[in-house]
């Protein structure tokens, strides 16, 4: 079973929930797909045994074969190739902008002259290892790179669904989130009971409903803010799976990089119940 942990708003506690759920289960897989700022390793402290470069396919142009027909530029949805057709008897020009390329390969596919081949551009690193019985994978996007989904999909190539798989998704509602949570059997949406948390939860709910993935909400930092988030979930028929209080003890353990269930073992039961509830919903 693949469970992704998403949120809408950042800083609500996705990693807290994902890490503690994985630890409570023990024999599980944890994938940190928040590749722009992965932090699950701070709590799981994995031993990394394998490192692999994450890549994006970008066009390499052999200008000697190019007729400046412009097909590649026309099919590129992101203006990553500019073609300057010859004028005044001069020679034309072609140039690519790798930082705009999404790696779709349309330029190479449609080039009528075979002038474009796709080459690997390193964009980050995938690290694989273990933390106790937890199989750990995360991706780290290189600083300055902006193409997030390809590295997320390369993290997800490591999925081993014979144990429960926990995906720690990035925040927001855009492409990286969709890449991270697609294919999940269930999605836990972590929120906080504040107007910001609620606003972003509402956006994320629209996305997840469109994707057709069953989901429920975990409310973190219960006790701050207001009761509007409870009200929203009740009105929308969204199950409230678990509430984690806004607690000094939890904040202290977080600040030391200690998972909740290590410093406050009574929470292990709560995370196991969370998993059981998800399993019963899907049964």
């Amino acid at each position: 079973m693949i469970i992704s942990v998403a949120s809408g708003k950042g800083g609500t506690g996705k990693t807290t929930v994902a890490v503690n759920l994985a630890l409570a289960l023990g024999n599980a897989q944890y994938l940190d797909c928040d590749v722009e700022e992965p932090n699950g390793h701070l709590f799981l402290k994995p031993v990394i045994t394998e490192r692999k470069t994450a890549t994006l396919l970008i066009p390499e142009i052999d200008e000697s074969k190019c007729t400046y027909c412009g097909t590649c530029g026309d099919v590129c949805a992101y203006s990553a190739i500019a073609v300057l057709k010859p004028r005044n008897g001069g020679k034309g020009g072609i140039m690519s902008f790798p930082h705009l390329c999404h790696g779709c390969g349309a330029c190479a596919y449609f080039c009528p002259n075979g002038a474009i081949t796709e080459i690997d551009k390193p964009i980050g690193i995938i690290e694989h290892g273990a933390s106790g019985d937890i199989n750990f994978v995360h991706g780290k996007l290189n600083v300055g790179e902006i193409m997030v989904p390809p590295i997320i999909s390369q993290v997800k190539e490591h999925i081993k669904p014979d144990v429960p798989v926990i995906i720690d998704a990035p925040p927001g509602t855009s492409c990286p989130v969709i890449e991270a949570i697609k294919g999940s059997d269930y999605c836990i949406m972590v929120t906080e009971p504040t107007p910001f948390g609620l606003n972003d939860l509402q956006l994320a709910v629209k996305v997840i409903r469109q994707m057709g993935i069953p989901f429920g909400v975990v409310m973190n930092k219960e006790g701050i803010g207001d009761d509007k988030t409870d009200e929203f979930c009740r009105n929308e028929g969204i199950s409230m799976l678990m509430k984690i209080p806004f607690s000094h003890d939890i904040a202290v353990s977080y600040s030391k990089g200690e998972p909740i269930i290590s410093s406050l073992p009574e929470y292990k039961h709560a995370f196991l119940s969370l998993y059981d509830e998800i399993r019963s919903v899907l049964a």
Binding site: Y78, R87, F97
Partner: peptide, 27 residues
């Protein structure tokens, strides 16, 4: 996205030899 690149190709295709503007980006 890529407005600068697209606009540059468009303007080039009009056969101009010079461009006068306020600011221009790297692409």
């Amino acid at each position: 996205g890529g407005a600068g690149i697209q606009s540059a190709q468009y303007v080039y295709s009009q056969g101009v030899e010079a461009v006068l503007t306020g600011n221009i980006g790297p692409n």
